[in-house]
Amino acid sequence: MQERKLAVQVQPTDNVASIFAEVSAGDVVEVMARDGSVESIPVHEAIPYGHKLALRDIPSGGTVLKYGESIGIATKDIQRGDYVHVHNLDSARARGDWKE
């Protein structure tokens, strides 16, 4: 039997979920929501254990939400099923490199 690929959506408004399995492109991840419901999403690329996938399309400049709160700003257009990490998500805090 193939191991289930599970991810956790912490709050209903979250547009990313953390995956607790190693996944490859084309794998279908089962995203569990707080209310116990499960949504299946095919992933577009390999995602390491503990890292995030997008649950919805997020435009460049859009807010990425986890725990129902902002965890930063998308730096590229992100599609549902994409891997979300430092290559497409930037912090908006403690940015000494940003001009006021």
Binding site: V86, G96, D97
Partner: peptide
């Protein structure tokens, strides 16, 4: 943290945090 004029990332979150899936300080803090 901003006083040295750089992005805090690598100091916080640390390279280990980032390898473990935490992308930003906001995500780590929450």
């Amino acid at each position: 943290a901003k006083s040295l004029g750089c992005d805090m990332r690598k100091g916080q979150p640390t390279p280990g945090n980032i390898a473990g899936g935490l992308t930003t300080i906001e995500e780590k803090s929450l």
